[in-house]
Every structure is written in structure tokens, then in C-alpha cells.
């Protein structure tokens, strides 16, 4: 049984079919790319998977359980985490507090001990602080732990978003255009980071990206979406040669 199995998934907004009849299987440990022209329905698929939108038809099975109709926070509790295309950090919170929010669901002590500052409050806070610091070290953000998130440079904000998603302890990580706005050097570092966190955290990753160098460089399998439908899938080399893909990207160079 695959980790994530999407069967005949469709979503319409009014009369418009944003995605239709998607069938996607992701095995545990895979690193999958999802590409396609703007408006092809990639982010919509993420939004359906994570419960932000409700599907119109179809079935989504994640870790052997149906995940349709769940609220976003329930999806996250089941082990699916995401980042956003347009960064959505908790701007006025410190870097470390951004991460601590994500630890909340797994490490929370009771409201009662919070109100009365019982011992479990102190041990809980200490545990969160330690875990968050460890995670920030991995992302090389530990010396900026107390800085306000909105004051970080762009590339570090993207990294913090990934760190925050990892703090929810996911099995499947959904990355929505993680390299957007990065320069080639930063993109290169990001590729290494993505590979590394997959090993370190034992992750499965589904990645939306426009940067072909990145997608072709790290992904083992790629799905190509156009007008809400899958027009091709396969290994990077097959995708590069696929005439349908070239047509969908007409005018855009496929690396």
C-alpha cells in the first residue's frame, strides 16, 4: 500500500474544473516532483490534500486512512505538513516561537498547568525550547532564534517555513515552490538541504517547483499537470523527452 494514494480526485470551483481525475501514488521515502504551467492546479491539489479546500469527487488515502473531509489541523496531526507558495510565517513572532507553535500539537501540556504554572509547564516549555533549538541548528537559523520572523532575509524565511513544517513531525512533506525567488546558489543549497532532510527525518516529499534544474536534480519521479489533468509521469529523463510536456511548456525551455 502506498503512503499516499489519490484516486480519481476532482475539484470544481463553480463550473470550472481546477483539477480532474487525478491518480497519484506515492511510496514511502520517495521524492516526487509536481510540475506544470501556471494555473495547472498544483497548489489546488496541495490545498485539497491538506484540507483547505474540499474535494468534489474522488478518494485520498494517506497511511491507510481516508483523509478527505478532515480539517487542515487534523491532516497535520495525521502526519502531512506543508509550506506555502507565498510565505506564511507568523510575522511578529520570533523565529523560535514560529517553530514552537508547530510543536504544540505533539508536546502540549494542559491549559490548567499553563494557568497555574505547574511543573509540567516548565518541563514542557524546556522540552519545546530544546527541540526547537536543535531544529533551528539544522537549518542554520539558531543564531537568529530571537529575531522577529519578518526581519529575516527572504531565503531564510523560506528555510524557516520548512523547519516549521518539520516541527509538526510529518511523514509526508509538501513543499510549494520552495526555490521561488532564490538565486542559483541558494537553489543549489536548497537541493542539498531537501535531500538531506529526507534522509535525516525519514521523509517522503512531494514538491511543486518551477525551477527545472531543481526538480530534475532531486526528484526521482515527476508528475506533470496541465489544465488540472496529469499529462505525463515518470523519471526526469522520460519527462524531458515527453512531447506532451514539451508542448505544455511551449515557449518555455525544458532543461
Amino acid at each position: 500500500m502506498p503512503l499516499l494514494k489519490i484516486e480519481n480526485l476532482s475539484k470544481s470551483f463553480g463550473g470550472l474544473k481546477a483539477v480532474s481525475n487525478l491518480n497519484i501514488n506515492i511510496e514511502k521515502g520517495e521524492l516526487i516532483g509536481l510540475i506544470g504551467p501556471n494555473g495547472a492546479g498544483k497548489t489546488t491539489l496541495f490545498n485539497i490534500l491538506t484540507g483547505v479546500y474540499e474535494k468534489t469527487e474522488g478518494k485520498m488515502t494517506f497511511m491507510d486512512r481516508d483523509v478527505s473531509g478532515l480539517k487542515p489541523y487534523q491532516v497535520t496531526q495525521r502526519g502531512m505538513a506543508r509550506t506555502f507558495q507565498n510565505i506564511r510565517l507568523f510575522d511578529d513572532l520570533s523565529v523560535i516561537d514560529n517553530v514552537k507553535v508547530a510543536y504544540h500539537q505533539r508536546t502540549a501540556y494542559s491549559t490548567f498547568s499553563a494557568l497555574l504554572r505547574l511543573p509540567s509547564y516548565f518541563s514542557g516549555e524546556e522540552e519545546m525550547q530544546r527541540k526547537a533549538m536543535d531544529l533551528l541548528k539544522i537549518f542554520n537559523l539558531d543564531d537568529k532564534a530571537e529575531e522577529t520572523a519578518k526581519n529575516l532575509p527572504y531565503g531564510e524565511q523560506r528555510r524557516l517555513e520548512i523547519a516549521r513544517a518539520l516541527a509538526t513531525d510529518p511523514k509526508l512533506l509538501l513543499l510549494d515552490e520552495p526555490a521561488a525567488g532564490m538565486n542559483p546558489q541558494e537553489t543549489h543549497d536548497l537541493m542539498n538541504l531537501i535531500r538531506w532532510i529526507r534522509e535525516k527525518f525519514n521523509l517522503t516529499i512531494l514538491l511543486i517547483e518551477h525551477d527545472m534544474a531543481l526538480v530534475m536534480g532531486v526528484c526521482e519521479r515527476i508528475y506533470v499537470l496541465d489544465y488540472g489533468m496529469i499529462i505525463a509521469q515518470g523519471a526526469p529523463d522520460e519527462i524531458k523527452r515527453n512531447p506532451k510536456v514539451i508542448e505544455a511548456y511551449l515557449g518555455e525551455e525544458v532543461v
Partner: peptide
């Protein structure tokens, strides 16, 4: 005490960005 706890941080995260908060399991 409430505000200074993880529950208070959950509340602040809603103020900061409700969609992100929900996606982080809040």
C-alpha cells in the same frame, strides 16, 4: 500565564496567520 504558554502562542499564531496556524496543527 495563559498568554505565556504554548496555548497562548497558539492564540497568537491565529492572529498572525490563521491559515498557517491551522496548517501547523493548531
Amino acid at each position: 500565564n495563559f498568554v505565556g504558554s504554548t496555548h497562548g502562542r497558539a492564540c497568537i499564531s491565529i492572529r498572525e496567520n490563521e491559515i498557517a496556524a491551522e496548517s501547523m496543527g493548531i
